[in-house]
Design a binder for these strands. Structure first.
Lengths: 188, 188
DNA sequence: GACGAGTTGGAGCGGGCGCTCAAACTTTAC
DNA sequence: GTAAAGTTTGAGCGCCCGCTCCAACTCGTC
């Protein structure tokens, strides 16, 4: 849609504004008016560049999910500690996007069928990735057990993010690091 | 407000309808129309018994939180396994209420200041309860370490509930039970 | 059965929602 | 400089929201 420089710049401003509003107000609080005020544009400009409010939101959601799982077709060289640390870094490094990620996973996933599919597909990839890493590090674990431990670890990390977003004074990084300790080879 | 039997019965129907709609559609999807259709009443009847839509929702939210933490002033005789099993039982026994619990914690807690306070107060009580149980069972743990482990356990349980609600085919009970195993005295 | 108190449905209010549209303006290519 | 294509603004449309109001109706009491 955008073909001139100004249009592309406006497009970027809209996505940035959408990101901010989504983080602050959540999925349903993200109104067109809020986005347009934040981006300092009129409604007409928005619809010149996006087909609908949902389109802009989905674009931001895609970004958030990609930030958590940056390399969907990755070759699988990372350790559990790497994967976990990368997630912690994502969360602490871009809390706005982390907020969106958690809100989408829950309020979106539990009420919107299409979003649930996206969230579950993303979750499945993560479980696979973590399971793979765990099997490499801990050949002593049965394959089924590795997957189960991966699921537990991801659930715990997700829960910690939630409580940290609710109360940022919580020592999220320390809590998260302790989760990985337990899965180390020397604890087998 | 309700003084005749019919009024009290209607009040119950409204709360039941609110519970169902909240679980299915989430906080923002719970419209007055949806509640009234579900309860098969007119809007006038609703406002004869509740001061606002929010009042009915808060009533249900209170129920959900109380279901997770049924005895806020409890004496502290439960073991970690008891506390964890009680939570698992709540979740599997009343998934509707569990849905509400998770949705409120996230979409409510992250966007509404008053709800966040409620959620955090509830969470703090739970952490205290779990920490207390863990200290009794595992005197070898430093007090700070017991609290940290309690936080990790609660976060993991919450995360597991989330993913189980997104995908009920997940073996939630098995995954949850494994979390407690690790904290047993004989693993010290 | 008469009567006050409580309960009921639903039309309709003010307001915010996502979105449209046309006229004015800006950018770009020649 | 010209003109086609792209961009912008903001009033306003239709819709649904939470909520009000009141005439009609039931309930409980005597």
């Amino acid at each position: 849609m955008a073909r001139y420089k100004v249009g592309l710049a406006t497009r970027r401003r809209i996505l940035e504004a959408t990101r901010l509003v989504l983080g602050e107000r959540g999925l349903d609080g993200t109104t067109l008016k809020a986005i347009c005020q934040r981006a300092d544009i009129g409604a007409g400009s928005f619809y010149n560049l996006f087909g609908s409010k949902e389109a802009a939101i989905l674009q931001v959601v895609r970004e958030a999910i990609r930030a958590v799982d940056p390399d969907p077709a990755g070759s699988g060289e990372d350790s559990i500690a790497d994967l976990s640390a990368a997630f912690v870094k994502f969360v602490t490094g871009d809390p706005e996007l982390a907020r969106i990620y958690v809100q989408i996973a829950v309020s979106g996933g539990l009420t919107d069928d299409r979003l649930r599919e996206r969230v579950l597909a993303h979750h499945e990839r993560r479980v696979y990735r973590f399971t793979d890493a765990l099997q490499r590090e801990r050949p002593d674990l049965a394959p089924g057990e590795a997957r189960v431990e991966a699921q537990r670890l991801i659930a715990a990390l997700t829960g910690l993010v939630l409580y940290w977003l609710l109360d940022p004074s919580q020592p999220f990084e320390e809590l998260a690091e302790g989760l990985v300790e337990r899965l180390r080879p020397d604890r087998a």
